[in-house]
Nucleic acid binder design. Structure first.
Lengths: 189, 189
DNA sequence: CAATTCCTAGTACGATCGTACTAGGAATGT
DNA sequence: ACATTCCTAGTACGATCGTACTAGGAATTG
């Protein structure tokens, strides 16, 4: 008994390629056959590794979640400072090279606001992590309620600006507003 | 020559029903057959009035745009005041009875961030209108650049909070943060 | 009245979807 | 070596999709 062992690395490698494909093509074009063709494998290979399509979405969101949470690690350097944390968050997310990734991120919202629970869970995890980072950035001596309030507001503002940035071509206007917002935080904190 | 005249009212009536269906079911379930079944007509009736599916999406977005712009008319009462305008904007958008509508609104973002131009155009029109309203609310005597900056920021914050509100179940946290944000505007303005 | 145009419905065709089924080569434990 | 399990591929089936085609009843002008 006990034949060939499961190749977990193979699945992870396929999953990363699928996430890249999703970032580039969006969710709507995410069918077995096109993905398999892009990866140079057969659809049955993908089905074998990921089961149903719903399970594949779950795997994609899990991996994407990991990536996005990792990209927001250690927002503050040494000192705990909300203003620098917010600025770091903005700069890490607003770069043109990450636009495709955040396009997919907001596509998750589009899906989460309809039925399936998996997309909503994804957002809860990611946003909760970012909230924690921005709460920590305010230091231990601030009122927890206001810390939560401030973190919520900062995330909401940045996310709203990001949506603008991705949806419009008016990058200057958005970056100007973002700069003003971050300056406000520096003045206040 | 000249036979039966075109019944424009019939088309408008069908379109409104389709928009309602879209608000309730989202874009992904927006196929000829289910919509026709829900409306109690045949698919050919819809095809006859709207042509291709892309044209139907265009019609839906056009009607939805009208609705959303109308819902934000006259944010300020008599006096031009950014704080009251922002508060009015928040209160008009955050109500639970409009949640379904804004779910679809953010679903537009999800699509706009991928290919098709029509969704991006929709957002440009709607956001431009809201921007204008919030710029006007600041009165004629403020610097146009800062007025644009402020309007951008207010819209971004409200939109970010709205996304949070729709995606999470933590309504209290969001409304608390929104209240703090609006209070800030009142203090500043 | 007749002619014409619009509205609606039924049907059918090709494409694509998710997925189950079959089967053969590859890699392991005994 | 052998049995067993994994990986990959090919194929096929049913469902759903957008849409073209056909045709008949309704409403209008001449």
């Amino acid at each position: 008994m006990a034949g060939r062992p499961v190749d977990h690395q193979r699945r992870a490698q396929l999953l990363d390629a699928i996430v890249d494909y999703a970032i580039e093509h969006g969710f709507s074009e995410l069918s077995w056959r096109p993905v398999a063709a892009a990866l140079g494998v057969s659809t049955t290979t993908l089905v074998h590794h990921f089961g149903t399509k719903e399970q594949m979405f779950e795997a994609i969101l899990g991996r994407l979640r990991e990536r996005m949470i990792v990209s927001m690690r250690d927002l503050t350097g040494e000192q705990a400072d909300l203003a620098t944390a917010a600025r770091a968050a903005w700069e890490r997310t607003s770069g043109p090279e990450r636009a495709a990734e955040f396009r997919l991120f907001f596509a998750v919202y589009g899906r989460a606001l309809q039925a399936p629970r998996q997309f909503a869970e994804f957002l809860e995890h990611v946003v909760a992590d970012w909230m924690g980072a921005l709460r920590d950035a305010q230091g231990p001596d601030v009122d927890p309620a206001t810390a939560t309030r401030t973190a919520t507001l900062v995330i909401a503002t940045i996310r709203g600006l990001l949506l603008d940035l991705l949806a419009t071509c008016d990058r200057d206007r958005i970056e100007d507003a973002a700069e003003a917002f971050l300056a406000t935080l520096s003045r206040a904190g």
